Amino acid sequence: MLKDAAAGYGLLTIILHWVSALLIFFLFGLGIYMTGLDYYSEWYHKGPALHVSLGLILLLLMIVRIIWRMVNKNPTALPNHSRTTLLLAKLVKYLLYGLVFIVIASGYLITTAEGKPASLFDVIHFPVITQLGADNVDRAGLIHELLAWAIVIVAALHALAALVHHFVIRDRTLVRMLKPIKKLPVADEQASSGNP
């Protein structure tokens, strides 16, 4: 089933979640790798271009995720999830979303600092909105680096919590983000969507 329902997540939510996660970790690894390159390295120019393009894809994915969440109801909480657990899960989700958008924004400001648009594989160009001076580019670079580390740490804790739910608590928290719900019987589907 493509859409989410009370019983669990649909295929699109699961795909958006895992593609975003893979992109984030790949971008982080690529960013770390690029810091060790010298001018004569083949990836000195290729790396940043790929980093920017994938960062812009992540931006578009995050926008789609937010719109998709707005038009889909969240699945019902599992019976063993306390209010504290649900609150922490919500806080982590909002923290990750906020950090990702700030890192993307700082990356965009660094990329466009010389007056050139940010390019998505030379197909779509994101125009320059504002140009930063040298000092502010350095600040944006520091924010970009520190918050990228924060994303990876929070995401690792998020993954650890999912593993604890799966192997220690033994509930369906992780499974719901791995297996899309199956097509519901018509009566159940109408009930989950609120239709009579």
Rank of each mutant, 00 (worst) to 15 (best):
G8S: 13
Q190P: 03
P127I: 07
P196H: 12
V100P: 00
A89F: 05
H51D: 00
I24C: 04
D188Y: 03
I14R: 00
Q190I: 08
L78H: 00
V100W: 04
Y33W: 15
A162L: 14
T130R: 11
S106P: 04
D188L: 09
L16H: 02
D122W: 08
M70A: 11
K116T: 00
G55R: 03
V175M: 13
W149M: 11
Y44A: 05
G98T: 01
F25D: 01
I63D: 09
F101Q: 03
A148C: 06
V154D: 04
N136L: 15
L37I: 01
N74I: 05
A105Q: 11
E114M: 10
I151G: 07
G55I: 04
L99C: 01
I57S: 12
D138H: 14
H166Y: 13
V64Q: 02
L59I: 04
L61K: 00
L157K: 02
P75C: 06
K183I: 15
A49F: 02
I169G: 12
L174H: 11
T130N: 09
Y39Q: 10
P79F: 11
Y44H: 10
H125E: 10
K3M: 14
Y108C: 02
S192K: 05
I104G: 03
R69V: 09
V175F: 11
A134I: 13
P79Y: 13
W149I: 08
G29D: 10
A148T: 02
I181K: 09
H17Y: 12
I15D: 01
A5M: 12
I67H: 07
A105G: 06
I104H: 00
Y40H: 12
P75I: 05
L11S: 15
D138E: 14
